[in-house]
Computed example of a mutant assay.
Amino acid sequence: MSKKNTDESGFEIIETPEALAGQISKAEVFFLKNRSVVFGIGGVILLAVVAFAGYRFYIDSQEGTAQTALANVVYDFEADSLQKALNGSGGNEGLLSIADSYKGTDASNLATFYAGVALLKEGKYDEAITRLQAFSSSDLLLHARAQSLIGDAYLEKNQAAEAISYYKKASEYEKNEFFTPVYLMKLALAQEKGNQAADAVSTYKRVIDEFPLSSEVVNAKKYIGLLEGQAGK
């Protein structure tokens, strides 16, 4: 019998043909004893692969239909025909139907965003919040925009704390010269409504200091003056 080889730590190293043959034999015995389990695991993996491929095929086939439906309804949305946009007209599906009927597609996700905006414009704040929270995007503009719109809905509901939370999310996501100052101004307004005057002043100052070229600077300075004047009374 060949002597077993070990490294310095004492761990057995299989190098000899006899040792290797022994390991193969052990594997064969294991397989014979557990082949039903092995085949079962293999079957589960195969089914998972087939199911995923089928799902992707289904989603891909749905995407084209959903994109066409969305293109038809966007005209109503842009024309502020909100009821038509939400519920459909002339045989066209509306945003709510597209969002719910083609889940998993990009068109459904975008329809969810549009539906949230339309519902917000109609004053249906709770429904708007639900739709906008369901929307997901890594897009620089749309993600922050959705957070800001949720803040708008909460502010309309006089829930300043919730509005502040979402405006902060919007203002902190991928900061840029064009939209971040707008979100900061909304945040400061919510802080004012939430009786957080000191925080509002700090936020207005951020607009002035961090975005000195933005058009919001003039209003930020004005509102700081008003708050500081009120505090001095």
Rank of each mutant, 00 (worst) to 15 (best):
D80E: 14
F113S: 02
G225D: 11
V218G: 06
L184Q: 02
K84P: 00
T6M: 04
L70G: 05
L20E: 15
K121Y: 07
L227C: 03
N5I: 15
E122P: 00
A115K: 02
E216Y: 05
K26D: 15
S25K: 07
I224G: 09
A21G: 00
I129C: 08
E28F: 05
I45Q: 06
G91V: 07
F31M: 12
E12S: 10
L96D: 10
A69C: 07
L141Q: 09
A51R: 01
L86T: 04
A71Y: 07
L119T: 07
K157H: 11
P181H: 05
G116E: 12
D106N: 12
R131I: 01
G116Y: 09
F113R: 01
N34F: 07
G225H: 08
L187Y: 08
G151C: 01
E177H: 09
E15I: 08
A115Y: 05
Y75F: 13
S97G: 00
Q83H: 10
S136N: 13
S215L: 12
A66K: 01
I164P: 01
L110T: 07
S171C: 01
L213Q: 15
G90K: 00
G43D: 10
S214N: 14
L184P: 04
H143I: 00
S137Y: 10
A163R: 04
S9C: 06
F39M: 08
D209V: 03
G104S: 08
A118H: 04
A220S: 12
L189F: 12
E63V: 01
A48E: 08
A53Q: 13
Q230G: 11
L142Y: 15
F135K: 02
L149H: 05
K168Q: 15
A53F: 13
T180S: 05
I150N: 03
E8P: 00
I24G: 02
N109Q: 02
R206P: 00
